[in-house]
Design a protein around this nucleic acid. Structure first.
Length: 290
DNA sequence: AACATTTCCAACCGCCGGTCA
DNA sequence: GTGACCGGCGGTTGGAAATGT
């Protein structure tokens, strides 16, 4: 028997979500928690495919999502992470606790990529790094092991090493430096809708549309946000706290974390050799939660 | 003021890996 | 051991809004 399509194309609504649908979905998730998306359409009466529900939740309705208005610090963090990890948007987004992978991906494609490519189009480092960093179909390297913790760490370590070398090399050579704050033009904040006021967090939006019934999203994101507490996330959070306090953001913390120089690495070089481990150690030290 | 072009972002699509019966 | 189901991810697209002429 044929496998039923993820969502039978007929009778499934597509396109933009209405406030009513949002409300239904949020209410359901509030009651049952995120997950078991398959049952969401059936139990809620939403004429949406389960995937669509999950996507809507993770990218838009999930509490704590910040939308638009990427800060300069985030810009640079994304650029660095993209260089390190390639187009692993979910992984990158996990370092930006309040951002979704879709948001990061969109922001990269619409803003950052343009900034990095045009002036002197040295071949997109990301892709090179990614070519190594991602378990691409071709690599002769050992097959991607099941991501148990140890294996994951090893793989991450290797990925980061390769990417870091490429990144450092690229950054030390040509002009257009994403690193230097000076040469790094901040995104034109508020160009288009310019985010005069980015859409309010879900609960508010839903509450508005629901005309009265304030629906507070108490559902603490438990899915990817576990990873979101990764090292960079902590650093960023701290940086943003400082920023919120009006002070200069010590992005250097993040940057140094991402681009740990050999000198530092040499100091407490890990037992397993190479400065590679340092980054990983630092990451783990910052509570990867494993 | 009207039209054309560009930019941006929400959502869809297809693929992949993990889990479970 | 195998196949089906499910969730997650990255790439891509279409429509709306903003900007330029």
């Amino acid at each position: 028997m044929g496998r039923p399509p993820c969502c039978d194309k007929e009778g499934v609504k597509k396109g933009p979500w209405t406030p009513e649908e949002d409300l239904i979905l949020v209410s359901y998730v509030q009651d049952h928690g995120p997950g078991n998306w398959r049952s969401v359409p059936a139990n809620t009466g939403l004429m949406r495919c389960s995937k669509s529900c999950r996507l809507r939740w993770t990218n838009y309705l999930r509490p704590g999502i910040r939308r638009g208005g990427f800060s300069e610090q985030e810009d640079r963090l994304i650029v660095h992470l993209q260089a390190l990890l390639g187009n692993r948007w979910a992984a990158i987004a996990s370092y930006l606790p309040d951002r979704t992978d879709n948001d990061v991906k969109n922001y990269w494609n619409t803003h950052l990529k343009k900034k990095l490519l045009p002036p002197h189009h040295h071949p997109p480092l990301p892709h090179r790094a990614a070519a190594h960093a991602t378990p691409s179909p071709s690599p002769p390297s050992p097959p991607p092991p099941p991501p148990n913790k140890g294996q994951w760490e090893l793989r991450l370590q290797t990925d980061i090493d390769l990417a870091r070398r490429a990144l450092r090399h690229a950054l030390s050579a040509p002009p257009p430096p994403p690193l230097s704050t000076a040469g790094w033009a901040p995104p034109e904040v508020g160009k288009k809708s310019g985010s005069p006021a980015p859409p309010p967090p879900v609960a508010v939006a839903v509450a508005d549309s629901a005309s009265g019934s304030t629906l507070e999203c108490s559902v603490v994101s438990t899915t990817s946000s576990a990873a979101a507490l990764a090292a960079g996330g902590h650093l960023l959070a701290r940086a943003e706290e400082k920023a919120a306090a009006g002070g200069e953001v010590a992005l250097s913390e993040i940057e140094s974390w991402l681009l740990l120089e050999d000198g530092v690495g040499a100091e407490h070089k890990p037992a397993h050799g190479g400065d590679d481990g340092l980054l990983l150690d630092a990451a783990l030290q910052y509570n990867f939660g494993f």
